[in-house]
């Protein structure tokens, strides 16, 4: 039974991926009109263009081109960038870790902080702690992220020069693994800090509501009746039960994380997939733009699938059918 549910989710993800591929094809090959100009730099000589035309199969009918395109996307052969004349895949590969790091750390930190605060608020109903958390949650939800980041830069990188103004690494780069790591972390501190600050509020609010509801349920009272310690009741029973919806929100936050990472990379001039996409889009570099977008969509689809799987592992009600009264 577990398998059936899992394959269902996998199929669904493949469906979304297929839709993304079609969308990519339409956006980056069909829509710009001349499919040629989307792969072949207009500045190439006519002979080079003809050869490349053959190579990329642009003289073939649209449907064949589509399948060729899918093959290219699935094998990550993205061609050459117009702007740099280098293989797009190499460029993307160098930028992927930065973007993933940003997304992963901010997701982890903001959810961890938010969950912890949410639980604390639920356990301290009516007291100051809860009120602060509720306020913080409402406020951070409405601030445009990049504004907060700009203000942080102004405050912590210029007025009080604690952090660097921009970039992922210092120039010139320091020597030695430890120095490089520390330098990188120092550069990533403000971006991650800002994303965490903006993200934790929503989490805290949501978790607080979930916990308050869970703590009022019968099974929590029963857990207490069984003489279990308060900690065990709160974390082992109440919190354990609200884990599935928490994971749902984790899943739903991924597209937002991607967008957040793109903006953050722009604000801090980080070396990531987001800035790559921006440069490509601004410079009409179709191969790069298509590849970057595809990668971001891929990250989204994969994280969604992963979150789905973890959700199923955590909530037995989803993967094992129930028996009705």
């Amino acid at each position: 039974m577990k398998n059936r549910w899992f394959w269902g989710r996998l199929l669904s993800s493949i469906g979304v991926l297929a839709a993304v591929l079609v969308l990519n094809f339409i956006l980056f090959r069909v829509m710009p009109g001349d499919a040629v100009s989307t792969i072949i730099d207009p500045n190439f000589s006519p002979e080079a263009k003809d050869r490349l035309r053959e190579l990329y199969g642009l003289d073939k009918p649209l449907l064949e081109q589509f399948f060729l395109y899918i093959k290219q996307m699935l094998t990550f052969s993205f061609g050459l960038s117009f702007l740099s004349r280098k293989p797009v895949w190499d460029e993307l590969l160098s930028r992927l870790p930065g973007t993933l790091f940003l997304m992963a750390t901010s997701m982890f930190l903001s959810s961890a902080l938010g969950i912890w605060l949410g639980i604390k608020a639920a356990l301290n109903r009516g007291k100051l702690a809860e009120r602060i958390v509720l306020r913080a949650g409402a406020v951070t939800a409405s601030f445009p992220g990049f504004f907060v980041q700009l203000v942080l830069i102004m405050l912590l990188a210029r007025t009080f020069p604690i952090f660097p103004l921009r970039g992922s690494v210092s120039i010139p780069q320091p020597v030695g693994t430890l120095s490089v790591t520390l330098d990188y972390l120092w550069h990533m501190a403000l971006p991650v800090l800002s994303l965490t600050l903006m993200g934790f509020g929503g989490w805290a609010l949501y978790v607080r509501n979930l916990m308050v509801k869970a703590l009022g349920e019968d099974f929590v009272l029963m857990a207490r009746a069984r003489g279990l310690s308060e900690n065990r009741v709160v974390y082992g029973h109440a919190f354990r039960t609200i884990l599935p919806p928490i994971l749902t929100i984790l899943l739903m936050s991924v597209p937002g994380l991607v967008s957040g990472a793109v903006i953050t990379e722009s604000v801090f001039s980080l070396h990531g997939v987001g800035t790559f996409l921006l440069e490509a889009v601004s410079g009409h570099d179709y191969p790069s733009a298509g590849a970057a977008f595809y990668m971001l969509a891929l990250i989204t689809v994969i994280s969604n699938l992963l979150a789905d799987v973890v959700y199923g592992l955590v909530d037995p009600r989803v993967r094992v059918g129930g028996r009705d009264q």
């Binding site: 979304v16 993304v20 991607v258 793109v262 903006i263 987001g274 969509a297």
Partner: peptide, 8 residues
């Protein structure tokens, strides 16, 4: 809903 909004 599964496509990241800002990039698109």
């Amino acid at each position: 809903l599964s496509i990241p909004t800002l990039p698109i």
